[in-house]
Write a protein that binds this DNA or RNA. Structure first.
Length: 642
RNA sequence: GCCGGGAUAGCUCAGUCGGUAGAGCGACUGAUUCGUAAUCAGUAGGUCGCAGGUUCGAUUCCUGUUCCCGGCACCA
């Protein structure tokens, strides 16, 4: 038997018997063996301890590589599981994958874990790392594994092997030391010591078995793990930074909005927050006008008949706010009107489309609305401005022909990218969500809709990733994800192709040949909701909005009360030029005023003392800049935008 | 909705092993007119989320409830 191993540089080496990655690494250099985490064998990641029994092209993956990080995190999950089972016998293991920054493991246990348990568990994990237990891979027949887990009281593992695995699927068992093992796809590091010390348990929470709310509730423990201590530290710092940017905190600190118990999930916008909101709205409105949209406004309360016709009553009845009104008696019968507070705008837009007879000449018809919608979101979903029950979408529906889908998609993608850029977001990615299990319409329609959307997104020249089964019940969609200043992704924009609603609500137009045809509807939004988008803006800028968005742009602060009149004059001048300015005439020292307005992240503080009043100048102090500029009052407006 | 944690002054938080509470900041009043990130002094402010129960007595213990926080599930 001879096994030929090909290295990344093209060199080949023959072995007489199966050889492990570790042995190969050792053969190259002990240093490499020490740094090695896993080995890539014919494009697949293998354990270093797994004998390579066939000809292969290999590449040793050291622990500083991204692929290794996933293995480190996955190992951390297993060490966590072992630690928990050592500390809390009788706890069942289920699954524990790596995540974007770390790992988690779901356990079945009567008692939930407490924050205090986390410390103990983490210590136990470090102890297991110190023990440096070898991690080895074994392949077991399914029946043997089922029997083993059943005898060990591991119901979830046994169930998974029976129901979750294909009968011919290879079942690998990873042994960690003598007495602990878990079924797992791997790969893993050669021993627990290789995990290192750059990990930390972060939180406990509930989770459902196999992600389904109908299943058993499990106890999940989360952790973060990195290849080096420095990376862990950097991560923890990022978390701290994110906490400082929390829009709920900043919303209060900057007096933008509040939410209270009497209107859960709905926003009370304060003057500053509402100024920000209107500034954003006006910006969007201008963009839509330029892009050929017509703005409309439709009713908040609409009879249930329309929602039954659209299909929403059937699908989302539980999440709709209902208004019932007593309409008095007729023929001895109580009459009641049942209206739904609209959860979305599309059926209303179809009503406008249906007024009169539409011609193909009017298509594409782009109907936009800053549509106030209300959805009874589950209580646990609510989160500041990010998830609310009352919100306004920058919604629009494009009524067009099937042939126009591509061009409209391309135009929309352009508009969206331009707007994101204006709003400070350069990095945008696209996800394509296709037909979900629970859907309306037959497969032929879905084939057409998905095909049209795929063609359109390709024509737009945007790279995209698939998001299988995540489409809306009426059609496939593109989802646009932007990346914020500290690297977090937010899904905001969307474009959805809908062949269904025009049919259900009987929208039609007269085609060139005089026949009646159904238009296609494109549902689209750029921001998604104003509430959420403002939340994202707050966090992205850490409350320090760019000048054009800042609710209060300039504070004019006199140094002595002798300059109050002049300060007022300066402020009036700015206001007349359309600048959002205020004076601060309080009897406080200039230090105090500057500190206060700087903490409120005001873009410009205009300081005026006796000198400025005499010379009719203004001293401008820009946010984040030490140096200041003294300019003529007549020229002050130009200097603001610089 | 589910699991866990929490709710004390406008904000951030301390505290009471059951005897009705305190700090800093903010607010208010007075003094100070001081040129680039906190001037000084004083005053006011709390049904300790809400409703029951136990108790001589509950903000504290128990039950329920509302809301918030971290996840999960959901997100037309």
């Amino acid at each position: 038997m001879s096994i030929e191993i090909t290295f990344p540089d093209g060199n080949k080496k023959s072995f007489d018997e199966p050889v492990t990655g570790l042995a190969i690494a050792q053969g190259i250099s002990p240093g490499l063996a020490k740094k090695a985490a896993v080995i890539e064998v014919n494009g697949e990641l293998w354990d270093l301890t797994r004998p390579i029994d066939r000809d292969a092209t290999v590449s040793i993956v050291t622990r500083d590589k991204p692929q290794a990080l996933e293995v480190i995190r996955h190992d951390a999950a297993h060490v966590l599981a072992q630690a928990v089972q050592e500390l809390f016998p009788g706890t069942q293991i289920t699954f524990g994958p790596a995540t974007e920054v770390g790992f988690y493991y779901d356990f079945a246990r009567e008692l939930p874990f407490t924050e205090a348990d986390l410390e103990k568990i983490e210590q136990k994990m470090r102890e297991i790392v110190k023990r440096d237990l070898p991690i080895t891979r074994e392949v077991w027949p399914h029946e043997v594994a089922v029997k083993h887990f059943e005898q060990a009281g591991e119901r979830f593992k046994a169930e998974w092997i029976r129901d979750g695995l294909a009968p011919d699927e290879e079942l690998s068992i990873y042994r960690q030391g003598e007495n602990w093992l878990d079924m797992c796809l791997g790969p893993h590091l050669p021993s627990t010591g290789k995990l290192g010390t750059a990990f930390k348990l972060t939180k406990v929470s509930g989770a459902y078995w196999r992600g389904d709310a109908n299943n058993a509730q499990l106890q999940r423990i989360y952790g973060v793990a990195f290849a080096t201590e420095d990376e862990l530290k950097a991560y923890l710092k990022m978390v701290e930074e994110a906490e400082k940017r929390d829009h709920r905190k900043l919303g209060r600190a900057l007096d933008l909005f509040h939410i209270q118990d009497e209107a859960v999930g709905q926003v009370f916008w304060h003057p500053k927050g509402w100024t920000l909101y209107r500034t954003l709205e006006n910006y969007v409105r201008r963009q839509l006008e330029d892009a050929g949209y017509d703005e409309v406004k439709t009713p908040l309360l609409v009879d249930r008949k329309l929602w039954e016709a659209s299909g929403h009553w059937e699908n989302y009845r539980k999440n709709m706010f209902i208004a019932e009104v007593d309409e008095g008696e007729q023929d001895g019968q109580q009459r009641k009107a049942v209206l739904a507070v609209k959860p979305m705008n599309c059926p209303c837009h179809v009503q406008i489309f249906r007024q009169g007879i539409r011609s193909y000449r009017e298509l594409p018809l782009r109907m936009a609305e800053f549509g106030a919608c209300h959805r009874y979101e589950p209580s646990g979903a609510l989160h500041g401005l990010m998830r609310v029950r009352g919100f306004v979408q920058d919604d629009a529906h494009i009524f067009c022909t099937e042939e126009q889908i591509s061009a409209e998609t391309v135009a929309f993608c352009d508009l969206l990218k331009r707007m994101y850029k204006d709003l400070g977001f350069e990095e945008v990615s696209v996800k394509f969500s296709d037909r979900p299990d629970n859907r309306a319409g037959d497969d032929a329609i879905w084939d057409r809709a998905e095909g049209a959307l795929r063609k359109a997104v390709e024509e737009a020249g945007l790279p995209y990733t698939m998001n299988p089964g995540e489409g809306a019940f009426y059609g496939p969609k593109l989802e646009f994800v932007l990346r914020d200043a500290i690297g977090r992704d937010w899904q905001c924009g969307t474009l959805q192709v809908d062949f269904m609603l025009p049919e259900r609500l009987d929208a039609e137009y007269v085609a060139e040949d005089g026949s009646r045809k159904r238009p296609v509807m494109l549902h689209r939004a750029v921001l998604g909701s104003f509430e959420r988008f403002i939340g994202i803006l707050i966090e992205n800028h850490a409350g320090a909005f760019p000048f054009w968005l800042a609710p209060l742009q300039v504070v004019v602060a006199p140094i002595v009360s002798d300059a109050d009149d002049y300060a007022t004059e300066v402020c009036e001048r700015l206001k007349r030029a359309g600048v959002r300015a205020e004076t601060d005439l309080r009897n406080e020292k200039i230090n105090y005023k500057i500190r206060e307005h700087a903490t409120h992240k005001i873009p410009v503080i205009a300081v005026v003392g006796r000198k400025e009043a005499e010379e009719r100048t203004v001293t401008l102090r820009f946010r984040g800049q030490e140096q200041q500029q003294t300019v003529k009052l007549d020229a002050v407006v130009e200097h603001l935008h610089a």
